[in-house]
Simulated scan of single mutants.
Amino acid sequence: MYLLATALEIDAREICSEIYGIQDPNMTDRFNLAAEDSVKAIKEERVKEIFLNRICPTITKFDKKDMPVVDDLLRDFYQLPDTERAEMLEHIAVSLKYHADPERVKETHSVN
Protein backbone atom coordinates (compact mmCIF):
# COMPACT_ATOMS: atom_id res chain seq x y z
CA MET A 1 0.00 0.00 0.00
CA TYR A 2 2.84 2.35 0.79
CA LEU A 3 4.20 2.01 -2.75
CA LEU A 4 0.76 2.59 -4.22
CA ALA A 5 0.17 5.59 -1.97
CA THR A 6 3.55 7.01 -2.92
CA ALA A 7 2.85 6.54 -6.62
CA LEU A 8 -0.55 8.21 -6.25
CA GLU A 9 0.95 10.91 -4.02
CA ILE A 10 -1.56 10.30 -1.25
CA ASP A 11 -1.26 9.33 2.40
CA ALA A 12 -1.23 5.56 2.90
CA ARG A 13 -3.74 6.05 5.74
CA GLU A 14 -6.36 6.99 3.17
CA ILE A 15 -5.95 3.66 1.40
CA CYS A 16 -5.90 1.75 4.68
CA SER A 17 -9.07 3.35 5.94
CA GLU A 18 -10.89 2.85 2.63
CA ILE A 19 -9.79 -0.73 1.94
CA TYR A 20 -9.35 -2.16 5.41
CA GLY A 21 -11.65 0.09 7.40
CA ILE A 22 -8.74 0.99 9.67
CA GLN A 23 -9.48 4.09 11.68
CA ASP A 24 -6.83 3.70 14.40
CA PRO A 25 -4.01 6.18 13.58
CA ASN A 26 -1.50 4.02 15.48
CA MET A 27 -2.35 1.06 13.27
CA THR A 28 -1.76 3.02 10.07
CA ASP A 29 1.48 4.45 11.48
CA ARG A 30 2.68 0.90 12.15
CA PHE A 31 1.55 -0.05 8.65
CA ASN A 32 3.50 2.87 7.15
CA LEU A 33 6.63 1.93 9.10
CA ALA A 34 6.35 -1.69 7.95
CA ALA A 35 5.84 -0.51 4.36
CA GLU A 36 8.86 1.79 4.57
CA ASP A 37 10.91 -1.16 5.85
CA SER A 38 9.70 -3.19 2.85
CA VAL A 39 10.75 -0.46 0.42
CA LYS A 40 14.16 -0.28 2.13
CA ALA A 41 14.51 -4.07 1.86
CA ILE A 42 13.62 -3.97 -1.84
CA LYS A 43 16.24 -1.28 -2.45
CA GLU A 44 18.85 -3.24 -0.51
CA GLU A 45 18.00 -6.39 -2.47
CA ARG A 46 18.39 -4.45 -5.74
CA VAL A 47 21.84 -3.24 -4.62
CA LYS A 48 22.84 -6.84 -3.82
CA GLU A 49 21.52 -7.97 -7.21
CA ILE A 50 23.54 -5.32 -9.07
CA PHE A 51 26.63 -6.17 -7.05
CA LEU A 52 26.38 -9.92 -7.62
CA ASN A 53 25.14 -9.90 -11.22
CA ARG A 54 27.02 -6.96 -12.70
CA ILE A 55 29.86 -5.61 -10.59
CA CYS A 56 31.41 -8.93 -9.52
CA PRO A 57 31.37 -10.44 -13.03
CA THR A 58 32.87 -7.23 -14.44
CA ILE A 59 35.63 -7.11 -11.84
CA THR A 60 36.61 -10.70 -12.64
CA LYS A 61 37.48 -9.53 -16.17
CA PHE A 62 40.54 -7.71 -14.78
CA ASP A 63 43.91 -9.40 -14.33
CA LYS A 64 44.98 -10.04 -10.74
CA LYS A 65 47.75 -7.46 -11.10
CA ASP A 66 45.11 -4.80 -11.88
CA MET A 67 43.11 -5.36 -8.68
CA PRO A 68 44.95 -2.74 -6.59
CA VAL A 69 44.26 -0.17 -9.32
CA VAL A 70 40.57 -1.16 -9.50
CA ASP A 71 40.37 -0.89 -5.72
CA ASP A 72 41.99 2.55 -5.80
CA LEU A 73 39.63 3.71 -8.57
CA LEU A 74 36.53 2.65 -6.65
CA ARG A 75 37.77 4.21 -3.42
CA ASP A 76 38.81 7.44 -5.15
CA PHE A 77 35.54 7.68 -7.10
CA TYR A 78 33.59 7.22 -3.86
CA GLN A 79 35.49 10.10 -2.23
CA LEU A 80 34.64 12.57 -5.00
CA PRO A 81 31.69 14.93 -4.64
CA ASP A 82 28.77 14.30 -7.02
CA THR A 83 29.75 17.11 -9.39
CA GLU A 84 33.24 15.67 -9.85
CA ARG A 85 31.80 12.17 -10.30
CA ALA A 86 29.57 13.48 -13.08
CA GLU A 87 32.56 15.07 -14.80
CA MET A 88 34.52 11.82 -14.55
CA LEU A 89 31.62 9.88 -16.07
CA GLU A 90 31.38 12.39 -18.93
CA HIS A 91 35.11 12.04 -19.58
CA ILE A 92 34.82 8.24 -19.58
CA ALA A 93 31.85 8.39 -21.97
CA VAL A 94 33.85 10.51 -24.44
CA SER A 95 36.88 8.23 -24.13
CA LEU A 96 34.73 5.17 -24.73
CA LYS A 97 33.15 6.78 -27.78
CA TYR A 98 36.54 7.07 -29.48
CA HIS A 99 38.80 4.53 -27.81
CA ALA A 100 36.73 1.56 -26.58
CA ASP A 101 38.29 -1.87 -27.08
CA PRO A 102 35.73 -3.81 -29.19
CA GLU A 103 36.56 -7.16 -27.56
CA ARG A 104 36.14 -5.75 -24.06
CA VAL A 105 32.90 -4.07 -25.09
CA LYS A 106 31.62 -7.44 -26.27
CA GLU A 107 32.72 -9.08 -23.00
CA THR A 108 30.97 -6.50 -20.84
CA HIS A 109 27.75 -6.81 -22.83
CA SER A 110 27.69 -10.49 -21.95
CA VAL A 111 27.37 -9.54 -18.26
CA ASN A 112 23.71 -9.19 -17.24
Rank of each mutant, 00 (worst) to 15 (best):
I10C: 09
L8P: 01
D63I: 09
I42T: 10
C56L: 15
E14S: 11
T60E: 11
Q23A: 14
H109Y: 11
A5P: 02
I59E: 04
L3V: 07
M67I: 14
A34T: 07
M1C: 00
A7Y: 03
C56S: 15
L52C: 08
I10G: 02
R30K: 10
R30D: 08
D37S: 10
I92W: 01
K106V: 04
L74C: 15
K48F: 08
N26S: 13
S110W: 04
K48C: 05
F51L: 10
E9C: 06
K43C: 07
I59S: 00
D72Y: 14
D101F: 01
T60I: 11
I15E: 03
K61Y: 12
E44G: 00
I22M: 03
V70Y: 05
D11H: 07
Y98W: 04
E45K: 13
C56Y: 14
E87T: 04
D66F: 06
F51C: 05
K61S: 14
P57S: 09
K106P: 00
D11A: 05
T83M: 02
L89K: 06
D82Y: 08
E90L: 01
Y78S: 11
R104A: 05
F62L: 14
P57E: 05
Q23E: 15
I10S: 03
F31N: 03
V70D: 07
N53H: 10
V105R: 04
V70P: 03
N53T: 12
I19N: 11
L80M: 15
L89V: 05
D29K: 15
I92T: 00
S17D: 08
R104N: 08
Y20G: 11
V111N: 00
Q23F: 09
V47A: 15
D66T: 11
A12H: 08
A7I: 06
F62S: 05
K61N: 13
F31H: 10
K40L: 10
A93H: 03
I50H: 04
K106F: 02
A5V: 04
F31Y: 11
I15D: 03
L73H: 12
T28K: 01
D72I: 13
D71N: 14
D63L: 14
E107N: 01
T6H: 10
P81F: 05
G21S: 03
E90M: 00
E18A: 15
M1Q: 01
K106M: 05
E14F: 12
E87S: 07
P57M: 06
P68E: 12
D76M: 15
K97G: 03
L8Y: 09
F77I: 06
D66V: 08
K40Q: 10
D82S: 09
L4S: 00
E49H: 12
L3E: 12
V69M: 14
D82I: 12
D76S: 14
S95E: 10
N32C: 10
E87R: 08
T58R: 06
I92E: 02
M88D: 05
L8R: 10
V69P: 06
D37R: 15
K106E: 08
N32K: 12
E14Q: 13
D76L: 15
L3N: 08
Y2K: 13
C16T: 07
F51R: 09
D66Y: 07
A5Q: 02
C16E: 08
M1E: 04
P68L: 11
L4A: 06
N112A: 13
N26T: 09
E18F: 14
E9A: 09
E14D: 15
F31P: 03
D24K: 07
P81K: 11
L33S: 13
A5K: 00
T6W: 07
V105Q: 04
